[in-house]
Nucleic acid binder design. Structure first.
Ligand SMILES: [Zn+2]
Ligand SMILES: [Zn+2]
Ligand SMILES: [Zn+2]
Ligand SMILES: [Zn+2]
Lengths: 175, 175
DNA sequence: AACTGTTATGTTATAATATAACAGTTGGAG
DNA sequence: CTCCAACTGTTATATTATAACATAACAGTT
């Protein structure tokens, strides 16, 4: 059902990432890159401590085992550049898959499967317009929009059995 | 600017609450009622531990000082009945202000002021339709929709000064 | 090279949010 | 009355995130 070439997807995202970082005058350092790669590894949302566990299993050259602040700093950096998004309803993170014409932020609609954790990301177009218009109606100035849909993806609906593989990110994600 | 009669608003919400609880065959016990009243006290989003602090300052008759599970149990109950909502992007909670025709859940759009913490709640109508339609397009079955707008309310835009009163819920909310 | 400002990272500890687990209590249904 | 289910109390712990301070790496300047 999925005509998704993930190798190509990763390559494209990494190119974009370097480009965006340079444009913003920032550096995509090895650690930041590692976090981005972990999130790019598949299209699931991954928790900060799952990322930490992965990094600790494969520490970078000449580096000690990373600690929580290392992960959160990298996440903050990547969030600011719009390279990743946070799933607020699950305290987890996923790599942005939307084409970024300039390096502008966009309003993301995330469809998160409660069973397998996969995230399907769409750009909010008309949907966001309505929110901005509604906010204008009572003088509210929007800085940031969060739109998340929790539910069941097509694959998990087909497989009746609950796989229980959800949130098993620490062991399921390889880098 | 705000033609809001809050006493009336609270009364109405409490009536609805009792009605909805009875219809669902559940009980609005004193503790649950206390949590609801704390959230009804104003239209700000309040954190679980702020609620806890308030409850500990004014414990109910014949009750010891409540502990975290007490608060989270009450919040879970009220969430299930749709009487309150959680602000996922801030780990806080606010009382639902939308008229509830039956006791059906609704999709809430929350406009949260980053400065004063006030929440303006709207019911998502057309906006949610678009999401459900979009989800249908790739076979995703939606259980729950989260729509949050973070920004600045009209009042806080007028007052240039940052009041810094945001999140000062433990001391600011009286019951 | 030595100095300096800036960004990035390391390290330790702790804050903030949320739940597990089990014991006790209560209030109706039968 | 007895039993069951719902509710509550209690202790401990899990999970998520940040504060605070020290050090390193780097770039430009003299
Ligand atoms: Zn995106
Ligand atoms: Zn799935
Ligand atoms: Zn509501
Ligand atoms: Zn405000």
């Amino acid at each position: 059902m999925d005509s998704h070439n993930h190798n190509q997807c990763i390559t494209k995202c990494l190119q974009d990432a370097h480009h965006i970082a340079v444009q913003a005058g920032k550096k995509l350092t090895p650690q930041r890159l590692q976090v981005l790669q972990i999130l790019l590894n598949d299209h699931r949302a991954v928790g900060a401590y799952d990322i930490l566990a992965i990094m600790q299993r494969k520490p970078l050259e000449d580096r000690t085992k990373p600690q929580p602040p290392t992960v959160y700093r990298a996440l903050e950096f990547l969030l600011e550049l719009g390279l990743i998004h946070k799933v607020e309803s699950q305290n987890s993170y996923y790599a942005c898959t939307i084409d970024k014409p300039e390096n502008r932020q966009h309003v993301a609609q995330a469809f998160i499967c409660n069973l397998c954790g996969i995230v399907e990301e769409k750009a909010a177009l008309a949907g966001a317009q309505g929110l901005y218009k509604k906010a204008d109606g009572f003088g509210f100035k929007i800085d940031r929009v969060i739109m998340e849909c929790r539910g069941t993806c097509a694959v998990c609906q087909t497989e009746q059995r609950q796989t229980g593989q959800r949130a098993n990110t620490a062991t399921g994600v390889n880098i």
